[in-house]
Structures are given as structure tokens and as C-alpha cells.
């Protein structure tokens, strides 16, 4: 496994890093190229495991985490979107109104003539992910 490998167990990072690392699941709990939601208190995170496919370039085999809240529908459903690429960038499409977001940066790439609900930002929050052995950790603020 070469996914987001780190040599050491996650530790509290520097001032700009996450405040805490939470264990989410095993890598094998995630279906490649499909998302899954994880719950940390009240925070819902959508996890995506990209397959070992050359088309994903440097992201092949990696795990990405973004907010599960879909800003355009207000429902917590981002983990159920279709994973793919836009001009080589790994993406996820919101399952409700089909906006497309970068899985790497969270930026909304296609708004599909909609505006986010209740003044929510259009871009998704991304979370750092670290994989140690077979365990996926998500860094939370």
C-alpha cells in the first residue's frame, strides 16, 4: 500500500495543521472510486479512495476527505457523488444538483447554474488525510 503513507503515527501538527487526528476506518472499508461518510461528533466528512489507476496520476491510490455537506442542497450527501476527473483533476459530483468539485482542493468547478443554499460557501472544506498501515486518519480543526 502506498496510499498517503506516513512513517510515524499521526501527531499533532504545527500551528497551521489540524488540532486533532481522528481514526476513520480501514482502507479496505472504502470501495475504490466511491465515497463513504464518516461521523466525528457533529462533523460529517466524505472520504474517497481513488483506485490505483494511472489516469489519476499522482493521486492514484490516495484517500481524499471533503465536507459531507453539499452546499447547493444543504443535505449531507457528498459521499454519494460520482467520482471522476475534469481535465485530469480528481472530482466528485454532488448527487442532488450535479455540481462538480475538486477532490484535491474542494473548489467548485461547475456550479450548473445554481447558487449555494443559505449563503453557504460554494467550495468544499477539505480535510487532511493520513494513512498508517491500513488505518485512515482524518485531521480535524
Amino acid at each position: 500500500m502506498t496510499v498517503n503513507d506516513v512513517a510515524e503515527a499521526p501527531v499533532a501538527a504545527g500551528p497551521a495543521g489540524p488540532a486533532r487526528w481522528e481514526r476513520a476506518c480501514l482502507v479496505s472499508d472504502l470501495f475504490p472510486e466511491r465515497g463513504a461518510a464518516a461521523l466525528f461528533g457533529d462533523v460529517q466528512v466524505a472520504l474517497f479512495r481513488l483506485p490505483d489507476d494511472a489516469a489519476y496520476g499522482g493521486h492514484a491510490g490516495r484517500v481524499h476527505a471533503v465536507q459531507n455537506l453539499d452546499p447547493f442542497s444543504g443535505a449531507h450527501v457528498m459521499s454519494r457523488g460520482i467520482v471522476g476527473t475534469r481535465a485530469g483533476e480528481p472530482t466528485v459530483a454532488a448527487p442532488v444538483y450535479k455540481q462538480v468539485f475538486s477532490l484535491v482542493t474542494g473548489v467548485c468547478l461547475v456550479a450548473a447554474d445554481k447558487t449555494p443554499k443559505d449563503g453557504l460557501p460554494a467550495d468544499l472544506v477539505t480535510y487532511p488525510v493520513e494513512v498508517r498501515g491500513d488505518v485512515i486518519y482524518v485531521g480535524l480543526p
Binding site: D53, A55, I82, V83, G84, T85, G88, P90, V100
Partner: peptide, 13 residues
């Protein structure tokens, strides 16, 4: 072109 092409929410369904 195969580089960077893993489909999308239009072609996959």
C-alpha cells in the same frame, strides 16, 4: 486520451 481520464457524472451513468 487516457491520461487523466476517469470519466465523470455524465459519461459514467
Amino acid at each position: 486520451g487516457s491520461a487523466g481520464n476517469r470519466g465523470c457524472d455524465i459519461c459514467k451513468p
